[in-house]
Amino acid sequence: MIGLISNLISGVSLGSVYAIIALGYTMVYGIAKMLNFAHGDVIMVGAYICFCGINYLSLPPVVAVLLAIIACTALGIVIEGLAYKPLRSAPNLAVLITAIGVSYFLQNSALLIWKSDPKVFPSIIKLEPIHCFDGQLTIGGVTLVTVLCCIVVMVCLTLFISRSKTGKAMRAVSEDKVAAQLMGINVNRTISVTFAIGSGLAAVAGVLLCSAYPTLIPTTGAMPGIKAFTAAVFGGIGSIPGAMLGGILLGVIEIFAKAYISTQFSDAIVFAVLIVVLLIKPTGILGKKISEKV
């Protein structure tokens, strides 16, 4: 029983990281209708910047994390402006390939700057682990902070999207770009803001991911990126609660598969569950059903 709870907690913790990454995917998809494959690499850049801030500039961890968030936000805006903006009217596949190009670019830049040898991410979360049930169950500090971060991000984002003017604009643009423009919403600026928020969240996710798994290489972001993308689809791409739910479910499934079925086949099991879910609900768990018009 304790083992089950312990696995559940580590699953939720891993899932929280996926969820934060998935939010970036889902927001960008919802608004720009594009699969931003470079998102996973923004995570990696965020982690590297935080790493450098602490190791080379000896900044306090909080400042380093803030630096990473600011840098990634800026990076997101720059990527969007340089690579995706010129392709606003281009076919989906062209944008997808461009995103892949950006992903290659980020990975190879990281390879040039930080070289291929793995960096050990410093442990910046120095929270004492919590012991419950007479010490039978230990919850690590990183786990706790990750889950808390995820809750904070979720609450803030939901409030931002539902209450603020920019959030309203984002919802309008994702509903109907042309109509939003006619209502005087600056579509380009709204898309930029979406990218900025998504990339800023990616930096948070990068720091959390590397706190849990401290090896940092230029391809660190690739696999979590794919998994989080899967999570976003799992929950119904374009839906923010869906990304959250999908991310956490994916994390829990992954940890449970590792613990109870097979360590080697955990990835296969995660993806198999995704396929089964999509076959039952073709637009994800919380996805909107799109009716087709003739």
Partner: peptide
């Protein structure tokens, strides 16, 4: 199973199958 889906959902499921095949062949 895949061809029941459409668009990006189909794409992600083919991606998932690719990863499953890789995972199985790795073991």
């Amino acid at each position: 199973p895949v061809l029941r889906l459409r668009g990006d959902y189909l794409a992600i499921v083919t991606l998932a199958f690719g990863e499953i095949i890789k995972n199985v062949l790795t073991n």
